[in-house]
């Protein structure tokens, strides 16, 4: 397969790497200080389970996540986001992501960042599987079905 690159510049990879380092620092602080995994789907999902008593730290973690764009805006404008996906497709995608990450006990943060960082076989398998699912889906929708 020939791989062509997008307009991927020096700045984009510096941005990716530095944002990634910050995510790693956050995940590292969470496990070293709180003894917990910074997995967004798990933290959100735990709030929806009535029998879980440990709500306070989950709410505060999410509060931090939610104010991040406002804190970022103190220094700079938010980067632009392009969402070409229609509402119906977004609703289907949201359901699949909600169900899938619940059954898999994790998403890109919990398995992809934290799980791989601690060398978990389950997380490596999960990450390879959801990446494969993403690659196949984008190939089908973009190149075969033209959605």
């Amino acid at each position: 397969m020939n791989i062509t690159f997008s307009d991927f510049t020096h700045e984009t990879y510096i941005a990716g790497l530095s944002g990634g380092l910050l995510i790693g620092i956050a995940a590292g602080m969470f496990v070293l200080l709180n003894g917990r995994i910074a997995g967004i789907s798990g933290i959100l999902g735990g709030l929806l389970q009535a029998d879980k008593g440990d709500k306070a730290w989950r709410v505060l973690f999410l509060l931090g996540l939610v104010i991040a764009p406002y804190v970022y805006q103190i220094a700079s404008n938010l980067p632009s986001a392009t969402i070409e996906t229609g509402s119906t497709q977004l609703i289907i995608a949201g359901l699949l992501v909600g169900l899938g990450t619940s059954y898999a006990s994790g998403c890109t943060s919990g398995h992809g960042v934290c799980g791989i960082s601690r060398g978990s076989i389950r997380s490596i398998a999960a990450t390879l599987t959801f990446m494969m699912g993403g690659f196949i889906t984008v190939y089908l929708t973009r190149h075969l079905l033209g959605l």
């Binding site: 949201g94 359901l95 699949l96 998403c107 999960a126 699912g133 993403g134 196949i136 889906t137």
Partner: peptide, 10 residues
């Protein structure tokens, strides 16, 4: 679960 998540992600 991961496969279903990947489809929604894609």
């Amino acid at each position: 679960g991961s496969l279903v998540f990947g489809i929604g992600w894609g």
